[in-house]
Design a protein around this nucleic acid. Structure first.
Length: 766
DNA sequence: CCCGTCGTTATTTTT
DNA sequence: TAACGACGGG
């Protein structure tokens, strides 16, 4: 292990200052690519080796498991003792806390975590009168309420959902959830906060335990997480805990999920005496790219403000490509990538970024055709696949026989003739009973149910009993700090041995086999050519290093539940283009980046205004700052959206960036050309659309278009399948397309291209 | 209980 | 457009 001083010596002045700072709360404003992970990890090592702080007194929280893992590994590289530090995600910390204080939380010690799907199922059972849609909406609101630490009886609940029925719905959901002994994601943060607030002794324990607390990606923390930090650090009690948060207000992009930018904007007010350090030297992107990024984000009003300084030279100007159609967009991207590949640039240098997952489709089919290898990141997640959820439900029910959702999921899969009515009876029975075990309830109900269902219930209960016996009934011992932090890491070498010679993976295999789920999904594979069995085996692989006992099972379920992004294609390090949503790119970087679909209505989305619009703009900023060497941006004039062909306007974000930021290729849409000239003070190019632009750009249109312009001329009455009756108020050529604008009787105004039949628009003949 | 057909509905989503 | 859920007939 090299001397800590040598690690300090590679830092720049600000980074060094941040590492060595002590004595007051610290807010590090770390711009994109400014080496913030290096600062945090060095700081951890520094505190241990130079300041003599025991590693177990250090708590570092991140948002993703990936980030936690990276942070832990890098810190350990700097100082081995860092392995004893608690480096976790917020949620895994909550899970650790709740298991430790499950009694105080009123939870089953073997609780598992319900995801959004499970929440929906649960809510539909708790409030059967809700439609699926209404329940989905309510689930979202409940999650949001928990993000803000609001309970059903909170006065401010209306700020989340104004519907007067909502508190009642939320209440019913909570009651039902509580009877399962499980938690949802929101609880992992909210319950620890409640316990800490109410229980002085536990609060004191925690404050004694953690002398140093660091939070990464602080800009994306929500209110509940802020309160957790507040309680853990003893903010109001002068506990002397050292708090250091790192974040970038310009990269806050999860407000829709409860992230509260105010947390970072007002950090200095909440934590008096805070020292602020800005990391503004960017070691990732070239100056031209950073310039564009800065032009964009500086249009936002609510920000602390910082300017990135390029440390890597000028580089080449970002390219802005206007494409007539989305097919041209895919061609453009594919051409770029193939041409670069011919010149020796690996596919993996490229990432294609988009706003919506649906946008990946076009690229996928074109890349398939051209044999360009690609990897789609994050669209369908491993954990939420049917077969995986099935197996996990079985395991969850073994861990906690009160798990209603898990029970319902697998009790009749494959079909044994146990219908919904029988299920309801079992659940009701379990609720009446003291222990609430659904397995025991199944036994009891088998007597009163129909012959077929009764036999199936008994068989099921026997199966469950044999599994439970196999996994052992020993409660998880208070295996303190030693084991559990390490056990969460999969490759823990100590785990498998012990008394349990068998591995959890074998047990899961047995569960899959005996439950009939293996057989069931195998036949599904044969029918529809899916990969379900392979996925189950992949799941088993992940359980290889967990011991086959209760603790191993719980640790495994925890790691799965809390890591929904289970690395997809694990082994293959193939050279491929990355297709990814803008949100998913946070923390990543690529030598060459293409941001696609810069069109009003897509990016930014139509309904975004005010602070929502600012968040979209930050998302664009995040996208731009992923690029190291080359950045391309595309914008289409025509796009097929939800089965309709729509005329698109370029995104106003392009105006924010300013034309001088780009090398422009393709035909500049005239409205955009004007807007960009009048850049100053203009916030929306919508103003420009109203002007008649046809005169300047009427050359070169075809006879076909001439005919169209006669049929679809100003004043003609039309009917649209969705919008109803309307009148054409304008017919004009925009570039090569003849475009009409229609005002509908319901007051809406829309533009169409009559050339495309799929507009669902017809001329009304008088 | 399984399968086909019709109708509806489309963000982003660390955990 | 496409994908998924709800519903009804075998």
């Amino acid at each position: 292990m090299a001397d800590i001083q040598s690690y300090l010596s590679v830092l720049n002045a600000e980074q060094k200052e941040a590492v060595e700072h002590e004595g007051s709360p610290l807010l590090i404003l770390a711009g994109a690519g400014s080496g913030k992970t290096r600062v945090i990890t060095t700081k951890i090592a520094y505190l241990i080796s130079e300041k003599g702080i025991p590693a177990w007194n250090i708590l570092a929280v991140t948002f993703t498991k990936k980030a936690a893992k990276e942070m832990s590994e890098r810190a350990i590289k700097l100082d081995e003792r860092a392995k004893d530090a608690q480096i976790r995600t917020f949620h895994s910390f909550g899970s650790w806390f709740l298991r430790r204080y499950s009694q105080e939380a009123g939870l089953d010690q073997n609780f598992t975590v319900y995801d959004e799907d499970d929440m929906l199922t649960l809510l539909l059972k708790a409030v059967p009168s809700l439609t699926r849609q209404a329940a989905g909406k309510a689930v979202h609101k409940i999650s949001l309420a928990k993000d803000f630490c609001l309970t059903p009886d909170s006065k401010e609940l209306y700020t989340i959902e104004a519907d007067p029925d909502f508190p009642e719905i939320y209440e019913a959901y909570e009651k039902r959830l509580h009877s399962t002994g499980n938690v949802d994601f929101g609880d992992l943060i909210m319950l620890p906060v409640k316990i800490l607030q109410q229980n002085e002794k536990i609060r004191a324990q925690m404050q004694y335990r953690f002398r140093v607390i660091m939070v990464d990606e602080y800009q994306d923390s929500n209110v509940a997480q802020f309160k957790l930090l507040q309680e853990l650090s003893g903010l109001n009690e002068g506990s002397g805990t050292y708090v250091c948060v790192v974040g970038d207000d310009d990269q806050s992009i999860y407000r829709f999920r409860g992230a509260e930018v105010q947390n970072i904007l007002n950090f200095q007010q909440y934590f008096p005496g805070t020292k602020l350090i800005r990391l503004e030297r960017n070691y990732r992107s070239t100056a031209q790219i950073l310039h564009a990024a800065d032009c964009v984000v500086s249009k936002n009003e609510s920000r602390l403000g910082k300017t990135l300084i390029a440390e890597r030279g000028e580089g080449s100007k970002p390219v802005l490509a206007f494409c007539p159609t989305q097919e041209d967009e895919t061609q453009f991207c594919a051409d770029l990538i193939q041409e670069a590949h011919r010149q020796g640039c690996p596919y993996s240098d490229w990432a294609i970024l988009y706003r919506m997952n649906a946008q990946s489709l076009g690229f996928e089919s074109e890349f398939l055709r051209r044999k360009i290898p690609y990897t789609v990141v994050g669209s369908l997640k491993f954990y939420q696949r049917e077969e995986i959820k099935d197996i996990l439900a079985f395991l969850a029910l073994i861990a906690n026989p009160r798990d209603e959702i898990a029970f319902r999921r697998i009790i009749n899969k494959p079909a044994h003739g146990i219908g919904e009515k029988t299920q309801d009876a079992v659940v009701d029975f379990a609720k009446q009973s003291l222990a609430g075990s659904l397995v025991e309830a199944a036994k009891s109900c088998s007597k009163t149910s129909s012959k077929k269902a009764g036999a199936a219930l008994l068989e099921f209960a026997d199966l469950m009993d044999s599994f439970t016996e196999r996994i052992g009934i020993d409660m998880i011992e208070e295996a303190e700090e030693t084991a559990d932090s390490a056990a969460a890491v999969q490759n823990d070498q100590n785990a498998p041995s012990d008394e349990s010679t068998s591995r959890l993976s074998d047990f899961i295999d047995e569960v899959a086999e005996k439950s009939g789920l293996f057989e069931y999904h195998k036949s599904q594979d044969e029918i529809s050519g899916t990969q379900k069995v392979a996925n189950i085996q992949e799941l088993e692989n992940n359980a290889l290093f967990y011991p086959c006992n209760r603790k191993g099972l719980l640790d495994f379920l925890d790691s799965i539940e809390l890591d929904r992004s289970l690395e997809e294609t694990s082994g293959d390090a193939t050279d491929s283009v990355t297709l990814i949503t803008l949100h998913n790119t946070k923390g990543l970087e690529f030598p060459r980046v293409i941001i696609t679909g810069l069109e009003t209505g897509i990016f930014p989305r139509q309904d975004k205004t005010g602070s929502d619009l600012e968040e979209e703009r930050r998302l664009f900023y995040v996208g731009i700052t992923r690029a190291k060497n080359q950045l391309y941006i595309t914008s289409c004039s025509v796009r097929r959206l939800y089965g309709k062909t729509e005329f698109m306007m370029p995104s106003q974000f392009l105006i924010d960036a300013g034309k001088d930021s780009f090398t422009v290729i393709g035909k500049i849409p005239p409205a955009f050309a004007r807007a960009i000239q009048n850049n100053a003070g203009r916030t929306s190019i919508d103003n420009e659309i109203d002007e008649d632009l046809s005169d300047d750009f009427s050359d070169g249109y075809s006879a076909e278009n001439t005919a169209l312009s006669k049929k679809w001329k100003k004043g003609v009455r039309v009917f649209h399948d969705d919008y109803g009756y309307g009148q054409i108020i304008e017919g004009a050529f925009r570039g090569e397309e003849y475009v009409i604008t229609v005002i509908f009787e319901n007051g809406g105004k829309k533009s169409f291209i009559p050339k495309y039949q799929s507009n669902n628009l017809t001329v009304i003949k008088d």
